[in-house]
Amino acid sequence: GTPTTGDNCAVASTTNDAPGVFPIGDTTVTWTVTDSSGNTATCTQTVTVTDNIDPTISCPATVNVNVDAGLCTASSVALGTPTTGDNCAVASTTNDAPGVFPIGDTTV
């Protein structure tokens, strides 16, 4: 935007310290107006940038395993790694896999 400025003589310039690229979060921009006599006044403006784009995830392929020897469960299951992406950065990837898988299908 543009600030509203005025002076009893004449406004010589209006400047700001805005960055070329705004990071996520709040950035304070300071506007400065200078009159023809060199007097200045300032005001501040807050620019808030929010990441509103969801990350993406593609699950690894289905896994088929046999039960552990002498048991009706499987404990050593290599799940694989999902493919993830985000416009900013992926902070973490988690799953709800049990420590021991029973016979049958388990959705992770």
Rank of each mutant, 00 (worst) to 15 (best):
S37C: 12
D17N: 15
L71R: 15
V21W: 04
V100F: 04
V47A: 11
C43G: 12
L79R: 05
V65M: 12
N95Y: 08
T83V: 10
T73H: 03
G38C: 04
D54G: 01
D105L: 13
N87D: 09
G20P: 11
S13V: 06
T14G: 04
N87H: 13
S13C: 02
I57V: 15
I53G: 04
A89C: 03
A74V: 10
D26L: 03
G6K: 00
D17Y: 15
D54H: 07
T83R: 03
T14D: 02
V108T: 09
A91Y: 05
T62N: 07
C72I: 12
T44G: 11
F101W: 06
P60E: 04
D68A: 12
I24A: 15
P23Y: 04
T56L: 05
T62D: 12
V90K: 07
V21Y: 00
P55W: 02
D7A: 13
G85T: 00
D7W: 06
S76Q: 13
T84D: 11
D35R: 03
S76T: 07
L71I: 00
V47R: 06
S58E: 15
N66Y: 00
A89Q: 09
D54T: 01
P82C: 05
T62K: 07
D35K: 06
T62I: 07
A12G: 06
V11F: 00
T84F: 01
S92P: 02
I57G: 06
S58M: 05
V108F: 00
G20S: 15
N39D: 13
V21F: 00
L71Q: 14
P102K: 02
G80V: 12
T4I: 12
P23N: 06
W31C: 00
N8G: 08
V67P: 03
T50D: 10
T32W: 09
D26S: 09
D7H: 01
T46H: 09
G25E: 07
T44R: 04
D86A: 11
C59G: 13
P82Y: 13
C72T: 13
A91V: 11
N16W: 13
T107I: 05
A78C: 04
Q45L: 07
I24F: 14
C9I: 04
A18V: 07
A69Y: 01
G20D: 15
P82Q: 13
A69H: 02
A69S: 15
F101E: 06
V63Q: 09
D86N: 14
I53R: 02
T81E: 07
A41G: 03
A97L: 10
D7N: 04
D105N: 14
N8F: 10
G99W: 00
G70E: 10
S13L: 01
D96S: 12
G6E: 02
P23K: 11
W31T: 02
D86K: 14
G38Y: 03
T62C: 01
D51L: 06
T14R: 07
C9S: 11
T84P: 06
T42K: 05
D7Q: 01
T50F: 03
C59I: 06
S92A: 14
D7T: 03
G99S: 15
S13T: 08
N95G: 10
V108M: 05
G99D: 13
T34G: 01
V21M: 09
T93F: 10
G20E: 14
G1Y: 06
